[in-house]
């Protein structure tokens, strides 16, 4: 563990807590993409299959349980509890256009042609594009609530911090995982446009409204 990875995990934790607070306080899921949350649930489920078979640390296990628990709770809030406030018309991204190519790529490009490794690779590739339905929804509605912007900023920062973690681990431990790094770079790049809007707008107390 290093400071970059710890900050990344805390940023990820903060994003999930911000999202839950937004939903619970406003009792609304307006502006939140249920499809992205379903993709995140798929990512966590695929990645944490070893939750019960391999023990890394208390921290690792607790975070995995928390991430899996909260993402399914979020889906419950979107599609059941606060269903009336879910904006399905604007949450129209065709996720099959993500899952099929990502699934195929995981079969073709992986470290080892073994079931758990391919499923892990699938979760890495899927995570890099899982935010697309959410960003697509914001571009369709033309705006994002400020708290949703904070959620996205924390979520985007988490993988950017992981990139720093991989740079550190390369020089400190000689550790390098090309698949995770490439997917992490793609994932972070997808947020760049949003980061720009966040820093130029939200930091000045304005709301994000597109086209900027």
């Amino acid at each position: 563990m290093n400071i970059f990875r710890l900050c990344g995990d805390m940023s990820h934790l903060a994003a999930i807590i911000i999202l839950l607070l937004k939903m619970w306080k406003t009792r609304s899921v307006a502006g939140i993409s249920g499809k992205s949350q379903i993709l995140f649930a798929t990512v966590f489920t695929a990645r944490y299959l070893d939750l019960f078979t391999s023990f890394i640390s208390i921290y690792n296990t607790c975070m995995k349980v928390f991430f899996i628990g909260t993402v399914y709770f979020t889906i419950y809030l979107i599609y059941m509890k606060f269903k009336a406030t879910y904006d399905s018309n604007h949450d129209s991204f065709r996720v099959e256009f993500l899952i099929v190519p990502v699934g195929g790529l995981a079969f073709l490009v992986n470290h080892e042609f073994a079931p758990l490794e391919i499923i892990w690779t699938f979760s890495i590739y899927l995570e890099s594009v899982a935010i697309l339905p959410q960003l697509f929804m914001i571009s369709k509605t033309g705006e994002a609530e400020t708290i949703t912007s904070h959620y996205l900023f924390a979520l985007g920062s988490y993988r950017a911090l992981y990139l720093c973690n991989w740079i550190y681990r390369y020089y400190a431990e000689g550790f390098f995982d090309l698949i995770a790094v490439v997917a992490g770079v793609v994932q972070t790049i997808l947020y760049c446009d949003f980061f720009y809007l966040y820093i130029t707008k939200v930091m000045k107390g304005k709301k994000i409204s597109l086209p900027a």
Partner: peptide, 10 residues
């Protein structure tokens, strides 16, 4: 090889 065999990251 240097891949992420020990999967210690979240």
């Amino acid at each position: 090889d240097n891949n992420n065999n020990n999967k210690d990251e979240l």
